[in-house]
């Protein structure tokens, strides 16, 4: 395996490529043996290459060009400077790091940074452990019907759109929602509305994430649990280990690599709290409480037309996300886990 591909290749990728290679794969040494070999292989694999073309073409247009388009962050981009995106880009004036310098004095930007970090920390603390606990619970249920039905219900909200999830919360906790209705009926409170309360917003979005995805999150852990060697439990039990000690010494060690991997990814995603969820509720709660980096990019760029500045925010976010992944992975390595990519 080439060392420089380590970061791009997920860890699982490595062994099958190395070990299961079919006999007709070229050995590392005999790569180039003249043009005849290439034409032969082209004739043999041409159809396979052809099949990948539509996907590659779509990715070039809708992933690679936008990635390259981020250079407008170093420009004063004007959509009217040329004919189309690439031409305008070529004709816009370069400004160096000016857009990034503007960020330093932008209070709204720092507010978005703070909100983003608060929201993702809360999710790390309160959301992250829930699927692990739920998976252990579901795994301990013996009755297969109960288990299948519980899973069907728990997975369901994951497939709902964010609009739907937010409207469900609106009907429960909004100004005209069920809780407000009951409080009014019982004469406890005349007005109650959690959906527009800026102070409560961080708890509201954590609850929404939990409602939508905690059930789906168990699937990874159930998969990891199903690979645990059952004889380990038996020997532990024979040696006198009770239920809790078996969980501590057999189950949790089996889950550790998956937990470490997901933790690293979660930390890497700390600056990416889902855009839709916040954009939909931004008006009701106000940008002060609900603005996160992704919505701020939308607000300055698409709503405000300051494309270069918004792209600069996007780049800063991307760079810091990468740094977070690398740091988290370092920590995972230090604790003896593999993390996202292998240790050198």
């Amino acid at each position: 395996m080439a060392g420089d591909q380590r970061l791009a290749e997920p860890p699982v990728e490595a062994p099958p490529d190395a070990s299961d290679a079919p006999p007709d794969a070229p050995a590392p040494g005999e790569r180039r043996r003249g043009g005849t070999r290439l034409t032969h292989r082209l004739r043999r694999d041409g159809a396979l290459i052809l099949m990948t073309l539509p996907a590659v073409a779509l990715l070039v247009v809708f992933a690679y060009i936008p990635i390259a388009g981020n250079v407008i962050a170093f420009q004063f981009y004007s959509p009217y400077a040329g004919d189309g995106f690439l031409d305008s880009m070529a004709n816009s004036a370069w400004t160096g790091l000016e857009n990034f310098e503007r960020l330093l004095d932008d209070r709204d930007f720092w507010n978005a940074v703070r909100n983003t970090l608060v929201f993702s920390s809360l999710q790390l603390l309160f959301y992250f452990p829930v699927p692990i606990a739920l998976a252990l619970l579901i795994n301990s249920v013996l009755h297969s019907k109960v288990r299948a039905w519980s899973q069907a219900v728990l997975y369901l909200p994951h497939f709902f759109s964010w609009v739907l999830v937010i409207t469900v919360f609106q009907q429960m906790f909004g100004g005209a929602g069920l809780v407000a209705q009951l409080l009014r009926d019982w004469g406890l409170a005349d007005s109650f509305d959690l959906m527009t309360d800026p102070g409560f917003f961080k708890w509201l979005i954590t609850a929404q994430v939990m409602w939508k995805d905690a059930g789906w999150g168990i699937i990874v852990f159930l998969a990891a649990l199903s690979t645990v060697n059952q004889e380990l439990y038996e020997s532990a039990a024979v040696d006198g280990a009770g239920r809790w000690r078996r969980m501590w010494h057999v189950t949790l060690p089996a889950l550790r690599p998956v937990i470490a991997l997901l933790l690293v990814l979660q930390v890497g995603n700390m600056l990416t709290v889902g855009g839709e969820q916040y954009l939909i509720q931004r008006t009701a709660v106000g940008p002060g409480a609900a603005e996160v980096l992704d919505t701020y990019v939308w607000h300055r760029g698409i709503e405000g037309g300051d494309f270069s500045y918004a792209a600069a925010i996007g780049i800063v976010k991307g760079v810091f996300s990468l740094l977070l992944v690398l740091t988290a992975n370092r920590v995972a390595h230090a604790m003896g886990e593999q993390g996202v990519y292998a240790r050198r």
Binding site: I49, I67, A310, G318
Partner: peptide
């Protein structure tokens, strides 16, 4: 099919985009 012609570079082209995911609301 492992070991087919240009299998690795094409796979890499796909995988690399996962690391820039969402890197561009504005350019898109």
């Amino acid at each position: 099919r492992l070991g087919s012609l240009w299998h690795r570079p094409i796979l890499f082209t796909l995988l690399a985009t996962m690391f820039f995911g969402g890197a561009g609301i504005i350019p898109t």
